[in-house]
Deep mutational scan, measured.
Amino acid sequence: RRRVRAILPYTKVPDTDEISFLKGDMFIVHNELEDGWMWVTNLRTDEQGLIVEDLVEEVG
């Protein structure tokens, strides 16, 4: 499975499927959606939700 790491922190918009995260958080990518969004699991918090790919980098 594809893994990505947050390069910046992010605070979710209330009442959306987004998740908040810290710089350095690792995610497993489940689905890549339109307009650069990804459905992921945050490995630190075990939370699932949407993040935008501009805020993460690939992990080898």
Score class of each variant (00 low, 15 high):
19 I>P: 00
4 V>T: 04
9 P>F: 07
46 D>Q: 15
19 I>W: 01
12 K>M: 06
22 L>F: 10
58 E>P: 11
40 V>L: 01
2 R>M: 07
60 G>H: 14
49 G>W: 01
25 D>G: 00
40 V>C: 07
33 L>Q: 10
43 L>W: 05
41 T>A: 05
39 W>C: 08
11 T>R: 09
4 V>A: 05
28 I>W: 10
56 V>H: 01
55 L>W: 11
36 G>T: 04
60 G>D: 13
9 P>E: 11
48 Q>L: 08
30 H>V: 08
48 Q>H: 12
50 L>I: 13
17 D>I: 08
55 L>I: 06
30 H>N: 07
5 R>C: 10
5 R>K: 10
21 F>D: 00
15 D>Y: 12
37 W>T: 09
43 L>V: 11
18 E>G: 05
11 T>F: 08
16 T>A: 03
22 L>V: 11
20 S>V: 02
37 W>V: 07
9 P>N: 13
33 L>Y: 13
57 E>K: 06
39 W>Q: 05
59 V>K: 04
51 I>V: 12
15 D>C: 13
37 W>S: 08
30 H>W: 15
8 L>C: 13
46 D>M: 15
22 L>N: 11
21 F>M: 05
32 E>C: 12
60 G>Q: 14
11 T>Q: 10
60 G>R: 12
42 N>P: 01
3 R>L: 14
34 E>D: 13
18 E>R: 05
40 V>Y: 01
3 R>C: 14
57 E>H: 06
43 L>N: 05
35 D>E: 11
57 E>Q: 09
14 P>Q: 09
45 T>W: 02
43 L>K: 05
29 V>C: 02
2 R>Y: 07
11 T>H: 09
56 V>K: 01
31 N>F: 15
30 H>K: 05
15 D>T: 07
15 D>N: 13
50 L>N: 04
43 L>T: 11
36 G>L: 04
45 T>R: 02
9 P>A: 14
53 E>G: 13
12 K>V: 03
8 L>V: 14
33 L>E: 08
20 S>K: 02
57 E>A: 07
10 Y>H: 09
50 L>H: 05
22 L>C: 09
24 G>I: 04
28 I>F: 08
9 P>G: 13
12 K>C: 10
9 P>Q: 11
41 T>Y: 11
41 T>E: 07
12 K>Y: 03
10 Y>R: 05
33 L>G: 10
17 D>R: 13
52 V>C: 14
32 E>R: 12
17 D>Y: 12
24 G>D: 09
42 N>Q: 07
20 S>Y: 02
7 I>A: 05
10 Y>G: 03
17 D>C: 12
29 V>H: 02
60 G>S: 14
50 L>F: 09
47 E>M: 08
7 I>C: 08
27 F>T: 00
30 H>L: 15
42 N>E: 01
41 T>D: 02
15 D>A: 10
17 D>T: 10
28 I>M: 10
10 Y>D: 01
21 F>P: 00
23 K>W: 06
35 D>A: 12
21 F>C: 07
38 M>D: 01
45 T>K: 03
2 R>W: 06
20 S>T: 08
46 D>Y: 15
15 D>P: 04
52 V>I: 13
14 P>S: 09
